[in-house]
């Protein structure tokens, strides 16, 4: 692969469910819609012409409504689903060309998965569930348990090793799911709506755990969600899926500031933009006025709080080496947080 930053590259991937998927391919390429394919040809369009580069060591979010093809897409990465046509490159290997044994080794050592409904083994304890992947790798039980104990502790489940999943709350069960996936040391982590089944508070907890772990592990994470808030919070990159097609990809800021069409704009209009937009996006040329020095990556909402508390009405924006690269006034901060429709109405007045 040309770009060393890219870990996973999906090329021209199509997935059509039905009796004769190949024969439908031409129609889909010609632009027959998902509904049309379903009503007139009795096939389901799962994915259509997906092209996606996923960067190493980052969190790629794939977002879309239920039925948009998220699960189908993520299952192509470890080939739990065979495509109708297409390529899935990981490092410099095409997953779809692997033979059975290579594929099994790939799944054992290089990509692990966390599931929406946990998919734990109900007859096994937390410890036994966590060593599951290691056991499949063929690791000796003692070593496996030592390794697993570390991850059980990291996800905050120390002391629950001997409990069965049925005795734990949903949030705790998903911690087991996460520990099980981390224990194999795979550098790709696939998470299919891993937090969607959890209560909002617990979901936030889990997001924090994941972000904390990622700070130090630097895995390549593919994170599926139907929740834009979650996508914006977790993602370094976001791809939005609709009816099996990627309609937009970019950073959280790009998605919020430049929604590609009304469909996405509709999604993003209720979002708290202050939690997505960074100072560097809205800063202006530096001036001599005083103000607290804030990092260029700081979110608008946090900056607004700090500026309000300080005697000055602006903040000085600094880069990684501490140089002042711009300023933002309190008005800029408020404007950045306003909903786009409100903003346009303000301009009309």
């Amino acid at each position: 692969m040309s770009d060393p930053e890219t870990k996973i590259e999906i090329k021209r991937l199509f997935k059509i469910f039905g009796d004769q998927p190949e024969s439908m391919l031409e129609k889909v390429r010609e632009g027959v819609s998902k509904d049309e394919l379903n009503d007139q040809h009795n096939h389901v369009l799962g994915l259509s012409d997906i092209n996606l580069k996923i960067r190493a060591k980052g969190i790629q979010v794939v977002m879309g409504l239920s039925g948009s093809g998220k699960s189908t897409l993520i299952r192509h990465i470890n080939r739990l689903i065979e495509p109708t046509v297409g390529e899935v490159w990981i490092d410099s290997e095409n997953v779809l060309e692997m033979d059975e044994k290579t594929l099994r080794d790939f799944r054992r050592n290089r990509a692990s998965m966390v599931f929406q409904r946990f998919a734990l083994l109900p007859h096994r304890t937390v410890m036994e569930n966590t060593i599951y992947g290691l056991e499949i790798q063929g690791m000796a039980e003692k070593d496996a348990e030592k390794q697993a104990a570390h991850w059980i502790e990291r996800v905050g489940l120390a002391g629950y090793e001997e409990n069965f999943p049925g005795q734990l709350s949903g949030g705790m069960q998903q911690r087991v799911g996460l520990a099980r996936a981390l224990a194999t040391d795979a550098d790709i982590l696939l998470m299919d709506e891993a937090f969607s089944a959890l209560d909002p508070l617990i979901r936030t907890d889990m997001q924090n755990i994941l972000l904390d772990l990622q700070q130090e592990l630097h895995k390549t994470i593919v994170f599926i969600t139907h929740d834009l808030e979650e996508a914006l919070r977790i993602g370094d990159q976001i791809a939005i899926l609709r009816d099996g097609q990627v309609v937009q990809q970019g950073t959280p800021q790009q998605i919020v500031l430049k929604p590609k069409d009304d469909y996405i704009a509709d999604f993003t209009k209720d979002i708290n933009r202050g939690r997505v937009i960074q100072l560097k996006t809205i800063m202006k040329v530096p001036n001599d006025k005083p103000g607290p020095e804030l990092s260029a990556e700081m979110l608008v909402e946090d900056a607004a709080q700090l500026v309000t508390e300080s005697p000055s009405s602006q903040a000085r924006v600094t880069n990684d080496s501490g140089d002042v690269v711009g300023v933002v006034g309190i008005n800029d901060l408020i404007r950045a947080m306003a909903r786009p429709d409100i903003e346009s109405r303000l301009e009309e007045l």
Partner: peptide
């Protein structure tokens, strides 16, 4: 449970590993 079986596949279990560690225990 199909999802548990899918998890076994995702972790690279061979058919035999799936049978003796997942299917038979859960069918017990």
């Amino acid at each position: 449970d199909k999802e548990v079986l899918e998890a076994a596949d995702a972790f690279g279990a061979s058919p035999w590993q799936k049978l003796v560690r997942v299917q038979i225990p859960l069918a017990l």
